[in-house]
Nucleic acid binder design. Structure first.
Lengths: 144, 144
DNA sequence: CTACATGCTATAGTGACTGTAGGTTCAAGG
DNA sequence: CCTTGAACCTACAGTCACTATAGCATGTAG
């Protein structure tokens, strides 16, 4: 049906950049589309659906490798969906870990900003807290 | 006092990698240290303090450019600390934005995972939700 | 038929490191 | 004094998911 999508129109529909679509093709996430005699890409609805899947999963924080796996799984609809479930749970756990890490940072940053007396840099609490080697005021220990 | 720190010992103290310290030097965040006749780096306490400052700021989510600015400001202790304060507030705002984005994702992921009936991929809710072009169940609209 | 928007490939840049290759230096033990 | 081997050195590639650029080629509207 809706054939003849140029890469630009497809990008517009999916709210992506043209380069991103070419990048997904290069990464094997999007199948190579038909080409005009002049070599330009022409997409159809199946491509548009697949791109929408990828973008939605990316917005939810799925890494490309996980998306690749989900796309492979969804090509095989009779398999049990345990693996799909576990990929999603991993992403959820990752998101939750990031949230708790950021909450701890937020508390420390808020205290830091609150303590600032707006004087001179020499007495600045913000600088003082950052320079505090002992981390005595610090709640957090993980990484980004 | 505590001179003669090799890059390895400094890395150990600061819980960083050796390469990270060399990277900070290359980026102008750490001043070039003394060298032995054979060309190996030897650090002192001032270096250790500066590295601790950088690491603590990084853990709090300050980007390297912001850290560079804070280090420059702290070299000039008579200046007003308004700029320091505003850099810290920017980082706080950034952290808070990331938290609310992630909270929205968490809600959608949790619902997705909850709806999974552990059947076959063909009927999997997780795949279904991700494929849902309309985003009708989707709370979020921003980027990572 | 001519503009010119859009497309093409290839390559480099982003941020903040991390890892590797291939070689050199240092400190301790024999 | 000499050897061993851990730790050091530089330079560069890789990570992730794009994004941007340069220098052409194509497609379409007027």
């Amino acid at each position: 049906m809706a054939e003849d999508l140029t890469i630009g129109k497809l990008a517009l529909r999916a709210s992506t950049k043209v380069q991103t679509i070419r990048f997904y093709e290069q990464e094997g996430l999007m199948p190579p589309p038909a080409r005009t005699s002049g070599g330009q890409r022409r997409y159809d609805k199946a491509h548009a659906d697949r791109l929408a899947f990828i973008r939605h999963a990316r917005e939810l924080g799925f890494p490309l490798d996980a998306i690749r796996e989900l796309l492979n799984l969804s090509d095989d609809p009779d398999q049990p969906c345990a693996r799909v479930d576990s990929v999603a749970r991993e992403v959820l756990a990752d998101v939750e870990a990031k949230i708790s890490r950021l909450e701890a940072l937020r508390i420390e940053l808020k205290r830091m900003v609150r303590q600032c007396k707006h004087g001179r840099v020499g007495e600045c609490r913000v600088i003082r807290v950052l320079a505090d080697h002992s981390h005595s005021n610090c709640l957090s220990h993980g990484h980004d």
